[in-house]
Each structure stands twice: as structure tokens, then as C-alpha cells.
Design a protein around this nucleic acid. Structure first.
Lengths: 162, 162
DNA sequence: ATAAACTATGTAACTGGTTACGCAAAAATA
DNA sequence: TATTTTTGCGTAACCAGTTACATAGTTTAT
């Protein structure tokens, strides 16, 4: 990677670089979970934290909060149930809804997980400049105001001639 | 997403935010390819540009340059061949190697693609602060010096007591 | 020259997500 | 109250990538 081709593309390679970064971080997270003997999938992390905070949530609520589709959440929750970390019951007020919670086992193991997650996030913190976090905030803000798709459309339709 | 849960996690949510950003950009790219009627897959973009620059490359070389595994490249190239955009022949000097090139059709359509890619990358440029690009460079640099995995290991082994 | 080690490609099976669809319950409307 | 629309969950089929493995060709070492 001496002369990184993607980097030479500048803004045209932005999406690819973000994807490469994301894939790399996820790859390392997997290895760290292995090494630290965290007995759950890395992508359960946020669900644990979310359910710790909110006590119980529906499938759709979790999906919205984390930015996944609901089938993705259903699959994750199913696995968490199989390993005894999650449970659910029908909402008595609306029988369409499944109220999902951590089990006692999940709550019991949380402190251990959190201690290990803390170590990882400290390493992230030492590596990631606060200025980058700020810039990331700004980009997310921009995107929430208008998606990249919309930006391109207005740009293209704005000057139809070229 | 008024109160974005992931954002509240600060550095503990960094990986998840990068993934969410990556997925969102890819999603929008797909829609833009549709809208702009770019008749190829978004992830062929870099391969087109790479083969334009290097004329011919092996599977492994492409994989290394783009940071994919070689089976991923094989699949992409197979599809590009099916649509007539790529071709390959055995390297006469080393019969294990497949030398991959753009076809004439690929080269012919490139200018049109590039014009459309230009529009997208301009919209990206208007959205992405140069400071973010700089911070991204620095993070990639940090990670290439020592992966997140290694950083955690040295951190943990460094002070074994806690 | 032979054997051992390595490299390049290819394939199979899996994974973590998606879209598209169906169904039942609830909410809105007539 | 009856009907239409919307919402929530679930499943099936798919997709882009991965890991693990096989095989054949090349290089290195003996």
C-alpha cells in the first residue's frame, strides 16, 4: 500500500475509503472479541447497551435506533435468545409488538462485557483525534439534512444543460 | 434520530458510526447509479479506474490494491466479463496468472461513466470538509502503523494488573 | 534433478446484512 | 360499524463479501 490507489482518487474514493475503514475496524473487533473472550457477537454490543438503557424495546424501535432494517434485528435477537441473553413477550397493549429485554444472564454478564468494551474504546480514543469526531458529527449532520442522493439530484437538475 | 443513541456512546460507538456512514453512502450510490443510468455495479467503479490506469493486472494485484480478498475480485470480474466489460488471458510468463483488462466496450463507455462519476464526486466534495479528509488520512496512517487489534493488545498486556 | 515451500487462482460454504412479500392487529376514515 | 389504511413482525430469497480448502504452477533449497 505504499502508493495507495484509492487515496489518489481523492473525493471519488471517499465512499470506498470509508467502507475499507469500516470493514477493517469490524475485522479487528472480531479478533478482539476472540482475544478478550467476549462470548457474544460484536454486533450485539449496541443492542446490549440499548436494552440496558431502555429496559424493553420492540423490534422496530431497536432497528430505528441502530439504523438497521427490522429483519436484521429479528435475526440478531433470535441468536441472542438461543444463547439465553434475550427474551421477549407480546405487548399486552398491542399484540403485534414483541417487547424485548435482556435476560438475567444478560444483565449478569454485562459488567464483565463493559469492562472489556472499555478497554477497546480507550484504544479507539487514543487513536481517533477528537477533531475527527467533530468532523464526523458535522458530516452526519449534513447527511441528515440532505442525503447524498438528494444533493446530487438538486445539483444535476439545477443545471440541466451540462 | 433526534437523540442519536450511537452518538451518545462516543468512542464506544465509533466503529458502528463508521459502518452506518459506509452503508448509507453505498445505499445512496446504488440509487444514484440507477438514477444516472450507469449500467454497472457501484463496486466496479474502482476496478474500472484501476484497469484504466494499469492496463492489465492479475486478480491478486487488484485484490491487494483495493483491499478485498481475491475471491471477491474473481466474482466481480466474472460479472464484468458476462456483461462484456472485462476480459482476461493467461500470463505467458506465469501460467498461474490471469491478466485482466478492460474490453473495448469497457474503454468506450468509460468517458460516459467518468462524466457521471464526476458529478457524484463533486457532490461529495461539497459535503465533505477538507479537514475531514485530512483527519481520515491521519487515521489511516495510524492504523497502517499499528492496527486497532495490536493497539489493544499492547495496551492490555502493558498493564496486566488491571 | 527432486523435493519442499510458496504463490495464484478457483470453488464451496458461510455470514451479516438487504429487499420483497405476506399476514394479522390497530388506527383512521367513511 | 364497516372498510380502508397503516403498522409490526416474520420469512424467503438474494447479495456482497468472507474464510477455508483444493489444485496447479513456480521458486527455493538440497
Amino acid at each position: 500500500m505504499e502508493d495507495d490507489f484509492i487515496k489518489t482518487l481523492d473525493y471519488a474514493g471517499f465512499t470506498a475509503r470509508i467502507k475499507r475503514l469500516s470493514d477493517g475496524l469490524i475485522y479487528d473487533a472480531r479478533k478482539l472479541y476472540e482475544y478478550l473472550d467476549i462470548g457474544i457477537e460484536p454486533n450485539w454490543h449496541l443492542i446490549f447497551l440499548l436494552l440496558k438503557k431502555e429496559k424493553q424495546l420492540t423490534v422496530t424501535e431497536i432497528a430505528q435506533q441502530l439504523g438497521f432494517t427490522h429483519p436484521a434485528i429479528i435475526k440478531i435477537i433470535r441468536k441472542m435468545k438461543e444463547l439465553g441473553y434475550a427474551q421477549s413477550h407480546v405487548d399486552p397493549e398491542d399484540s403485534r409488538k414483541q417487547l424485548i429485554q435482556l435476560t438475567q444472564k444478560g444483565l449478569d454478564e454485562l459488567p464483565d462485557f463493559e469492562e472489556k468494551w472499555k478497554k477497546i474504546s480507550l484504544a479507539v480514543q487514543e487513536m481517533v483525534d477528537p477533531g475527527l469526531m467533530q468532523k464526523l458529527n458535522e458530516l452526519e449532520q449534513m447527511l441528515s439534512e440532505q442525503s447524498l442522493y438528494e444533493r446530487c439530484l438538486t445539483k444535476i437538475e439545477g443545471n440541466e444543460c451540462n
